[in-house]
Amino acid sequence: MNLTQQERLNARILIVDDQPANVALLEAMLEEAGYTRVSSTMEPDKVCAMHRKAPFDLILLDLQMPGMDGFQVMEGLKASTADDDYLPVLVITAQPGHKLRALQAGAKDFISKPFDMVEVKARISNLIEVRLLHRQLARHNQYLEQVVQERTAELRESEARYRALTELATDWYWEQDGEGHFTKVSGPVLEMLGLQVDTLNDGAGTEHSDDGWNLAEREALRARIAARRPFLDMVLSRVMPGGVVRQYRVSGTPMFDASCTLIGYRGFGVEVLGSSLR
């Protein structure tokens, strides 16, 4: 992320000081440095409302003011802008003991009276850059969250279309969750796998008779599914009563969510051949 010089100079700055001479000095210094959006007030009780209405990128805040001091102003700012964890305050103080307290109260930096104008300009420039970069990062994160939401919605829509088309185009279809529990079954999937369950969510199920299925092929299929490995067109065969042999092609693939975390497994199969042993 980069900031242009114009972006820095367009930063909104507020001077809060009860001494007109200090306000005039800081205004002149900022104007000379090229800053174009500088406001001031000698009424600290109005700062929170001004910041809520149009947030400032930097607030130059005198700590020692009658009626409402700078510490009270910072507490008000934190309470009134709870959705923004960044407090853009540079405190002004003549009391060395106030510096640590101000930083603990949330100020980002401090300048001492009497002013060293070179130091003041440098600290203002640094804090404005940090504030604007912080705001850019927040906007970028919001954009990324929006993109993730949009992509997730697209994936869900695509997944729904895939499931519908797959079920229409195949004889069998099944889904399992990340624990291996069957969550959706279309066709005699459990019979194909040699399982018997009372409900879909009872787990992997219990064994039952082979019913003419080729047991070696069945075990190979179950091993692939248990390992959550993708496979394509695996052949299964079954001898039906009367000696008719049926063959099926079965495919399976793991499922992942938008963050690439494994969430389950799905598979489908079609009958491809029927013949007689006679």
Score class of each variant (00 low, 15 high):
Gln5Ile: 09
Gln6Glu: 15
Glu7Pro: 03
Arg8Ile: 14
Leu9Val: 07
Ala11Glu: 13
Ile13Trp: 01
Ile15Lys: 09
Ile15Thr: 09
Val16Phe: 02
Asp17His: 06
Asp18Gln: 12
Gln19Phe: 07
Asn22Gly: 00
Val23Glu: 01
Glu27Phe: 06
Ala28Ile: 12
Met29Gly: 07
Met29Tyr: 02
Leu30Met: 10
Glu31Asp: 13
Glu31Gly: 14
Glu31Ile: 12
Ala33Val: 11
Gly34Leu: 08
Arg37Glu: 13
Val38Ser: 06
Thr41Ile: 05
Met50Tyr: 03
Lys53Arg: 11
Ala54Cys: 07
Pro55Ile: 05
Phe56Val: 04
Ile59Tyr: 00
Leu61Asn: 04
Asp62Leu: 02
Gln64Pro: 01
Gln64Ala: 08
Gly67Tyr: 08
Asp69Ala: 06
Phe71Val: 05
Phe71Cys: 04
Leu77Trp: 02
Leu77Lys: 04
Lys78Leu: 06
Ala79His: 07
Val89Lys: 00
Ile92Asp: 00
Ala94Cys: 02
Ala94Asp: 02
Ala94Arg: 07
Leu100His: 08
Arg101Cys: 06
Arg101Thr: 12
Ala105Leu: 03
Ala105Tyr: 00
Asp109Phe: 14
Phe110Tyr: 15
Ile111Trp: 07
Lys113Ile: 00
Val120His: 06
Val120Lys: 10
Arg123Ala: 00
Arg135Val: 11
Leu137Glu: 15
Ala138Met: 13
Asn141Phe: 09
Gln142Asn: 12
Val148Glu: 15
Val148Asn: 13
Glu150His: 14
Thr152Lys: 07
Arg156Tyr: 10
Tyr162Ala: 09
Leu165Ser: 11
Thr166Met: 10
Ala169His: 06
Ala169Trp: 02
Thr170Ser: 13
Tyr173Gly: 05
Trp174Asn: 03
Glu175Arg: 14
Asp177Phe: 00
Gly178Phe: 02
Gly178Met: 05
Gly178Cys: 05
Gly180Tyr: 00
His181Ile: 01
Phe182Gln: 04
Lys184Phe: 02
Val185Tyr: 01
Ser186Asn: 07
Gly187Asn: 04
Glu191Ile: 06
Leu193Asp: 00
Leu193Thr: 01
Gly194Ala: 03
Leu195Asn: 05
Leu195Asp: 03
Val197Met: 08
Asp198Glu: 10
Asp198His: 09
Thr199Ala: 11
Asp202Asn: 03
Asp202Ala: 02
Gly203Pro: 12
Gly205Ala: 03
Gly205Glu: 01
Thr206Arg: 11
Gly212Cys: 09
Ala216Arg: 14
Glu219Lys: 14
Arg224Ser: 15
Ala227Gln: 15
Ala227Tyr: 05
Arg229Lys: 15
Pro230His: 05
Leu232Phe: 14
Val235Trp: 08
Leu236Asp: 15
Arg238Trp: 07
Met240Ala: 14
Met240Thr: 13
Gly243Asn: 14
Gly243Leu: 09
Val244Ala: 11
Arg246Val: 13
Arg246Ile: 06
Gln247Val: 15
Gln247Phe: 09
Tyr248Trp: 12
Arg249Ser: 15
Ser251Arg: 11
Met255Leu: 15
Met255Gln: 14
Asp257Ser: 11
Ser259Phe: 10
Ile263Ala: 09
Tyr265Leu: 02
Tyr265Thr: 01
Arg266Glu: 03
Val270Phe: 02
Val270Leu: 04
Glu271Gln: 10
Leu273Arg: 10
Leu277Glu: 03
